[in-house]
């Protein structure tokens, strides 16, 4: 049984990055995170959703992105971003700092590095032709009442 499981699905359009951030922000805010933790979560989600929008589908804007959120433990959140697009042929290489699938477009190639710096765990599963699943796990610092 998944705890406080919420999912939302939206079209792979650039303007939906802001929507995805707002949704995850509203979800995580209920856990009373620090402002910094909330920004870290929003940033990591922004990177994962950007990747799905920019690289996920051959035809830009033609496809859907699924975002799922779940509480693994009271202070541990899971966010999973799935696309059903072209996948990644070499995940290890894609996750290297400065690697960019579109080198001519002024991309920094730092998306996965940012996700890994800001989250406690980043898992990437990709199958060429079937899509990519990025799972982000964040442990929040919890201060219990004394």
């Amino acid at each position: 049984m998944k705890k406080n499981y919420i999912k939302t699905e939206f079209e792979a359009l650039p303007q939906n990055q802001g929507f995805a951030r707002a949704v995850v922000s509203a979800y995580a805010a209920a856990k009373d995170p620090t402002v910094e933790e909330l920004t870290e979560i929003k940033t990591a989600v922004s990177e994962a959703v950007s990747n799905a929008i920019i690289h996920g589908y051959e035809k830009k804007g033609k496809g859907r992105i699924l975002m799922e959120m779940e509480e693994l433990e009271p202070d541990k959140l899971l966010i999973r971003i799935t696309d059903y697009g072209i996948g990644i042929s070499d995940v290890k290489r894609a996750m290297e700092p400065l690697f960019s699938g579109l080198p001519e477009e002024e991309m920094s190639g730092m998306g996965f590095t940012v996700m890994e710096s800001f989250m406690d765990k980043v898992l990437v599963e990709a199958k060429p032709g079937e899509g990519t699943v990025v799972t982000l796990i964040k442990c929040l610092d919890t201060y219990y009442d004394l």
Partner: peptide
């Protein structure tokens, strides 16, 4: 208020 890695490309470019 918010910036992701897209800002890096913008600055470096």
């Amino acid at each position: 208020e918010f910036m992701d890695s897209s800002g890096i490309g913008m600055v470096l470019g």
